[in-house]
Design a protein around this nucleic acid. Structure first.
Lengths: 200, 200
DNA sequence: TTGAAAAACGGAACAATGTTCCGTATTTGT
DNA sequence: ACAAATACGGAACATTGTTCCGTTTTTCAA
């Protein structure tokens, strides 16, 4: 290794070396192909299918994403971010209760388009652990804000955990009657200020 | 044991031939092994593992259960039946609201012990189609009865479909916070007599 | 009791998939 | 233009569902 001093490019960050152009190209193609395939065949689609659609070998897929789930996570990250970003926007445009409802609606729509994602999140397979983590780290604060605002406004009870709700909705989504079931869950939010189901 | 004529055993049904003893033995061993393995490793456990535990070859497993899911279904059928049978018993021993709550509790406990079952039910994999069918055909009437009784008694709203609720609970079960989420759902049952979430 | 036909058995073999490995091709910095 | 570094593609391996078939066990009746 001759010394590789990157002269002026030596940014603070560990920017070891400029990313090779082919890497960037393949990564883009991969993410795009994966997004398309996931939408079509669900998140359980074979890696080979994605690799082929992207015009790369499976080796390339695995170099960028050591685990299948890493690819899934990468593909969804940006959509998750967008969903999280929507929260403050809605909060600024509607009253607390309405904003909460609208955000949940958006969240449901997002989850619904990802066949198999709900299962993956809950599969228990250690390989999917990072995914729900990212989900919650990004979505929980967003929902938490809306939840708190709505509770303060007295529109819903105040003892509901954002993470719980996020998880519950994700599980309910995907079913034919998802809308109805989520609605029921939301009604539960308004039931009262104190626990009361007897199942606690 | 010479005289083998089926004499009085000759039931009307096309009892072509008495089931071979080894068949019965293997079938029992299989169901028992499967039940144990499912409880330990979840319903996704490899068929080979079950076959080995039962002391039979995989060929035997597939002769009795053409699809993996058929075995899963067989193992749960009796438990499902028991769960369904509990409904009228509870209805006879408690007031409508209480009976409903207790039955849901039992249902949750049952689902909880079957790691992966909720996912299987919803997997979309055509191979699991018969399972949810059996579930609903047996559990829906049971829950429906309790639901109707509770609604009549004015303890919950009357527009909740038993199938929906069954499905929703199955999806929620298995999570760490399943109890809390189901409780929230149940609270939703009491919210009012009319739709009100705005998500409908 | 005995022997041949029927039924079931076990497990090797096949197919689909996730993942790893490595010889080859591409890119980069000089 | 060249050599080192890096990435690439896809064959090879591991795991698991499912099928196939030669062998073993059970049944039935003479």
């Amino acid at each position: 290794m001759s010394d590789k001093r990157r002269t002026q490019n030596e940014v603070a960050e560990g920017a070891d070396r400029r990313v090779r152009v082919d890497v960037q190209r393949n990564l883009d193609a991969l993410l795009q192909a994966a997004k398309a395939v996931f939408a079509t065949s669900g998140v359980d689609a074979p890696v080979r299918e994605i690799a082929e659609k992207a015009g790369v070998g499976v080796g390339t897929v695995y170099r960028h994403f050591p685990r299948r789930s890493d690819l899934v996570a990468a593909v969804f990250r940006r959509e998750i971010d967008a969903c999280a970003a929507a929260a403050p926007l809605l909060a600024a445009s509607y009253e607390p209760g309405e904003a909460l409802l609208k955000w949940i609606e958006r969240y449901v729509a997002f989850i619904a388009t990802k066949r198999g994602l709900a299962e993956a999140l809950h599969s228990g397979d250690p390989v999917f652990e990072p995914l729900p983590l990212y989900f919650q780290q990004n979505l929980e604060p967003a929902l938490g804000q809306l939840l708190r605002a709505a509770a303060t406004a007295g529109e819903i009870r105040g003892d509901v955990d954002a993470g719980d709700l996020l998880n519950a909705i994700a599980r309910l989504s995907g079913a034919d009657q998802a809308q109805r079931m989520v609605a029921l869950l939301v009604d539960g939010l308004r039931y009262g200020k104190k626990a009361s189901s007897g199942l606690r």
